[in-house]
């Protein structure tokens, strides 16, 4: 019983980290209707940047978190400006082309990271002790990472819902045409959304690398993780995203413990496919015709 409770707490904490990953992708998909297949590679890149900041400059991962986010913000802006904005085709052709573009991008990012960091697993040691709560021991690193991720997601959520710029992102996500006719510079909003989404990926990476070691080829797996969350939560549904993140965290932690890490990886994919087939509209609500 104690094991189950501990695992449940770990799963819920992991959910916080997943939430940060998914919110970034949700933002990008919501505003641009573009799927970024390099999202996972951005996460890995953020993590590896945090690794270098730690290894070269001795920077604490919590300090590396904003720096990695900032660098990815710049990369995201560049990608949007140079790669995705020039694709003007509408409908399924536009979807296909942006898909191919980010598919190519994911290989470029992953292999460029490979040239820099090599193929070995990297990780950042951080708060290796445990917080004791009665009979339950919670890894301090996970707790800190999870709280940081929750805080960042909350801040961005507040920014999205209360500021004018945030609201213009929201408006563009719901109807680009409507937003444009209200005088919103939709191009600028798209740039901001992609950059911000990428920054969240980078930040999430800086936190996750303290928990699990990264390899440059981990990206594809993380992309599917992020998409599982989106599919599970329903598009643009923040309550759904949170629920999905917690569920995925629990699934992963329990599967790891009871089935081993290899099978756990397979379980995530099975959940992903099953969710898409059984509830393509997500767990909550009917949003997100895809």
């Amino acid at each position: 019983m104690l094991t189950v409770i501990t695992l449940a707490i770990l799963g819920l904490l992991w959910g916080g980290v997943y939430l940060l990953m998914a919110t970034g992708l949700n933002l990008i998909y919501g505003v641009m209707k573009v799927v970024n297949l390099a999202h996972g590679d951005f996460i890995v890149l953020g993590g590896l940047l945090a690794f270098s900041l730690f290894a070269e400059a001795g920077l604490n991962p919590l300090a590396a978190f904003p720096i990695a986010a900032l660098i990815l913000f710049g990369i995201g802006a560049g990608v949007q400006f140079g790669l995705l904005e020039p694709i003007t085709a509408a409908g399924s052709e536009g979807e296909l082309r942006s898909l191919l573009a980010t598919f190519g991008l994911s290989y470029v990012v992953a292999n460029a990271s490979f040239l820099v960091w090599g193929s070995q697993f990297q990780s950042v040691p951080f708060l290796e002790g445990a917080v004791q709560a009665g009979p339950i021991a919670i890894p301090a690193g996970l707790l800190a990472a999870s709280l940081a991720a929750f805080a960042a997601t909350l801040l961005i959520h507040l920014w999205l819902t209360t500021t004018i710029t945030g609201k213009s992102l929201h408006a563009t996500a719901q109807s680009a045409l409507g937003a444009a006719s209200c005088g919103i510079d939709v191009r600028r909003v798209r740039l901001l959304a992609f950059a911000l989404g990428s920054a969240m990926a980078g930040g999430a990476g800086a936190l996750v690398i303290t928990l699990i070691p990264f390899q440059t080829s981990t990206g594809g797996e993380l992309t599917v993780h992020a998409f599982t969350l989106i599919a599970l939560g329903g598009l643009g549904n923040y309550a759904g995203a949170w629920l999905a993140a917690e569920l995925l965290g629990l699934t992963e932690v329990f599967a790891q413990f009871y089935l081993g890490s290899n099978a756990a990886a397979a379980v995530i994919y099975v959940v992903f496919i099953a969710v898409l087939v059984v509830r393509p509209q997500g767990l909550l609500g009917q949003a997100g015709r895809v």
């Binding site: 799927v35 399924s92 979807e95 898909l99 594809g220 797996e221 992309t223 599917v224 998409f227 599919a231 290899n262 099978a263 990886a265 397979a266 994919y269 099975v270 992903f272 496919i273 898409l276 087939v277 393509p280 895809v290």
Partner: peptide
């Protein structure tokens, strides 16, 4: 099963399938 998905979700579902198979065969 897979063709019930559309667009990106079919593409990624197939990606997931490849990984499931790889893990199973391993």
């Amino acid at each position: 099963i897979m063709l019930r998905l559309s667009g990106i979700f079919f593409a990624l579902g197939m990606f997931g399938l490849a990984r499931i198979l790889q893990i199973s065969v391993s």
